[in-house]
Design a protein around this nucleic acid. Sequence first.
RNA 1: GGAAAGGUGGCAGAGUGGUCGAAUGCGCCGGACUCGAAAUCCGGUGUACGGGCUUCCCGUACCGUGGGUUCGAAUCCCACCCUUUCCGCCA
Length: 424
Amino acid sequence: MLDIQLLRKDLPAVVAGLGRRGVVFDETAFRSLEDERKTLQTRTEELQAKRNSLSKQIGMLKGKGDDTSAVMTEVAGLGDDLKANEVALAALQERLNAFLRVIPNIPRADVPAGKSADDNVEVRRWGTPRQFDFTPKDHVDVGAALGGLDFETAAKLSGARFSVLKGGVARLHRAIAQFFLDVQTQEHGYTEVYVPYMVSGECADGVSSLAKFKEDLFKIEGRDLYLIPTAEYPVTNFVRDSILDIKDLPLKFACHSPCFRSEAGSYGKDTRGMIRQHQFDKVEVVQIVPPDQSADAHEALTSHAEAVLKKLELPFRTMLLCTGDMGFSSAKTYDLEVWLPAQNTYREISSCSNFEAFQARRMGARFRNAQGKTETLHTINGSGLAVGRTLVAILENYQRADGGVDVPKVLQSYMGGTTSLPPG
RNA sequence: GGAAAGGUGGCAGAGUGGUCGAAUGCGCCGGACUCGAAAUCCGGUGUACGGGCUUCCCGUACCGUGGGUUCGAAUCCCACCCUUUCCGCCA
């Protein structure tokens, strides 16, 4: 959520900032809501003040045993007017709030303007795609040859966009997650956390807009609970409705969890294989920091995600997303894209975003600064990394002509010393 | 799932209709005392929104959440949520 103080103080800056991401801010609607709010609030608070002071008088008179009927009559006259104003004010604040909560974040100044993924900017590239002396298969065929990827059984169980892993492939999948968690906790200082895989609507609306994106989530029937689309949902909400001590910052968490996404609106996209699934595993890294540290923390967090790709020796590039391709809550996002030989292209495997105060404001996450004043925190998170897509990348990049797949060096110890998955 | 008890400030804990945003203690901050510290003493110490002559003052709201009763609700009524204990069930 944007800072309403900023909207009041410098509306043109907000309009211009949102304009960069192609969002038209309805100034007229906002101004009229604000004007009405001001009138109603002033009027309501005046009436409340009057009622309070008259009621206190009644209390004092009764204490002395004096007659209160005159004051009672006076205060009774306020009743209907006051009630009407209170109801109107509450309704208006509800509208103002709803209005504000569906407005996306303002991109940072260093985010390039653009309309779509085509306008994203490559900021660096690492590794050289392997030259194959045979035609590389895609991960579906590689997995099938290993007897480890079974989409038919998954479809029988749950329909499209699910997968069943078996044998060495299932073990490799587990190894990847363990490896990610170990790197992030042991080398980058994140605290490992285990969390609920369902969160309340309130928490969901803290990290994004539930009103706008609820069709992307799986909801539990008859309950105010949603399956998490990323561990960002529970983990960022650790600090909801709280005021942290500056000495406890920054907070850094790493969390392995399954992620559930309805993938509404992605019909026909990535239908083959496990690129786009309703359920996938991910290790998420989250940082909660004071505002003056968020830009640096965002760069650091991105490098933490890159570090695991380097260790896996998977070629990737880092893209700075343009204003038009960023998520709702983000002020600046880097996507890491891993090389997939069968597609002959780079595909997203991590997304690292700085939300600045946007999520924290929605959640009521604050800290007490050096001056002792409460201030809104900044939140940052990224995938470190997506486990399923990493499996895909390994199967494709490490495949052999004989149909086997080599296990990346750093994962071998997680596989009981296994150096390769044999064909058949 | 059944029964009971309970949810109050950073923490503990008082408050069962009227100057209660809330006693008291602890903690924390500032000051005094001290060479320094401890102890002691004095003062201060919630959040959000609105307004103002904007290091401060004023108003409003907030005692789990949402409704209701009342001139007035932390206090009474209703619903819900959560916690604890006991019983049942269960990986």
